[in-house]
Write a protein that binds this DNA or RNA. Structure first.
Length: 464
RNA sequence: GGCGGCGUAGCCAAGUGGUAAGGCAGCGCUCUGCAAAAGCGCUAUUCAUCGGUUCAAAUCCGGUCGCCGCCUCCA
């Protein structure tokens, strides 16, 4: 498999550090508000990458950080006049609920910054000892002139950074004094109204970037395979992580950096500061299914801007319905018999093509095209399939879904006795040619989310 | 100012040198008591635009137009 490495700005063949295993770190949320669908585009892409690694036979160790101590979380707690933990706990719970609704595979660990303060203190101490950091007015800063690689990930040169940051530094001069305008903070000295922890270099709290260096090191080691996040993380967050980690450990931090492009809404940039964002809850309240949201967010290429619209969400829901109808039909195949070898070979070839498409920089659109081609190939002969054929194709769909995660298990529960009675009543009406009555019952069941289909083999039903 | 991305049918979207995947929507038809599902047929001589290279260009090169991102809040 190959994909685009932000660090080298080219497509690279993936080579894991330890055979068959992948260490994966994904930047998680800052829990000061409800996550929006833009956040979930990134998390769903990360989930897709992880699922494809698993599909390809790798064992994946995946950790995600949760930033529960920073300027924004503190500000929110102070605004609401409640303890910080109360704010963060609420949004952490909301985050996990949405991840579940969107059918993401859980990470091996979700790491909270506040639960890793000692590790961060230790890392800052190490950077001070090695001379990469300096103390100033109770805070500790990283000196980027000590790290000659600084700016490599973001493709920025240090000279232009200096110019760009100078204006900002003037505006922030009352906040912190720094030796060089572009240096970044590792540890913020204690301030009134902020949580703080003791440290050898003075009581205070961690800067934003240090948590990811400290926690990834602890759970994945100083050198691991893949680090992911949204494109906005490239600079400064990931650039700073590299500086901290490589200076402290003296080894390469991460081999592959993968960044997901943003989404916009109705053509406009989406951000919390503009307030034009949808949460998952907003969309569910409008009656859209979480799986339609997932389908839409993963179905276009991760390095391209995605323009989110409700019309697009509707199209995603319809595409999903086509897939679900296909599976529904396969499950109702009734002709006994084994699988046709020619068909089985076509299915196997389709799965190969599906994987090959994803192996080429996660081309989900191409992979979906492969799957829909198979659907279009099978549908015309649906009525001639044997159970053996159907089982093979259903197994194929399971494999496809192991990567895409767009189909939930157990869509068809057992029918309520009352609903079954209604269906029987309608069948009786139909036999008696009382179609008005039959249609009335069908309409009533539709209101309950039950769709009836009259087929030559008898009535079938499904949930909407 | 520096760095980078995008522009393919009504909509969404693959395709990065060999003659335009796929999904949605639409129209006609088949099946059906009617629906639903499914199927069949139709829907881009053309890939923002101009020029160049090539036997061959949506794909490579150059210009132009338009949109967007990053350059210490952001997934």
């Amino acid at each position: 498999m190959r994909f685009y490495n932000t660090l080298t700005r080219r497509l690279e063949e993936f080579r894991e550090i330890e055979k068959g295993r992948v260490g994966l770190y994904t930047c998680g949320p800052t829990v000061y508000d409800f996550p929006h669908i833009g956040n979930f585009r990134s998390y769903l892409f990360e989930d897709l990458v992880k699922r494809f690694l698993l599909f390809s036979g790798y064992r994946v160790r995946h950790v995600m950080n949760i930033t529960d101590i920073d300027d924004k979380t503190i500000r929110k707690a102070n605004e609401l006049k409640v303890p910080l933990a109360e704010v963060t706990q609420k949004y952490i719970a909301a985050f996990h609920a949405d991840l579940r609704a969107l059918n993401t595979l859980p990470a091996d660990a979700y790491l909270r910054a506040t639960e890793h303060i000692p590790e961060m203190v230790h890392l800052v101490s190490a950077l001070l000892e090695k001379g990469y950091a300096y103390r100033k007015d109770g805070s500790v800063y990283f000196s980027i002139e000590r790290f000659k690689e600084y700016g490599r990930l973001a493709n920025l040169d240090r000279a232009s950074l200096k110019t760009g940051a100078a204006a900002n530094a003037a505006a922030d001069a009352d906040e912190y004094e720094k030796e060089a305008a572009q240096d970044f903070v590792l540890w913020k000295g204690k301030k009134p109204g902020e949580p703080s922890w003791p440290a050898p270099f003075g009581e205070g709290r961690p800067g934003w970037h240090i948590e990811c260096s400290a926690m990834s090191m602890k759970y994945l080691g100083p050198h691991f395979d893949i680090h992911m996040g949204g494109v906005d993380n490239i600079f400064p967050h990931h650039e700073n992580e590299i500086a901290q980690s490589e200076c402290a450990n003296g080894v390469t931090f991460v081999n592959y950096w993968l960044h997901c492009q943003h989404l916009i809404v109705d053509g406009m940039k989406m951000s919390k500061s503009l307030g034009n964002f949808y949460t998952l809850g907003d969309l569910l309240a409008k009656g859209y299914a979480p799986m339609a949201v997932r389908y839409l967010l993963i179905s276009s290429h991760y390095r391209k801007l995605l323009n989110f619209t409700l019309e697009g969400l509707e199209m995603a829901a319809q595409a999903l319905a086509r897939i679900k109808n296909f599976i529904f039909s396969l499950k109702h195949v009734e002709i006994e018999g084994g699988a046709d070898p020619e068909l089985a070979a076509a299915v196997a070839a389709s799965l190969d093509a599906f994987g090959a498409s994803l192996a080429d920089d996660f081309n989900v659109s191409g992979a979906l095209g492969v799957m829909f081609d198979l659907i279009a190939d099978v549908n015309p002969r649906m009525n001639a399939l044997t159970r053996g054929d159907a089982a093979g194709i259903l197994a194929y769909m399971d494999r496809v879904n192991a990567v895409l995660g767009i189909l939930e298990p157990g869509d068809e529960g057992p029918l309520d006795a009352e609903i079954e009675a209604r269906i029987a009543l309608r069948e009786k009406a139909r036999r008696e040619k009382d179609f008005a009555r039959a249609d009335e019952i069908r309409a009533e069941l539709k209101k309950q989310g039950i769709i009836l289909m009259d087929t030559p083999a008898g009535v079938r039903w499904k949930k909407e």
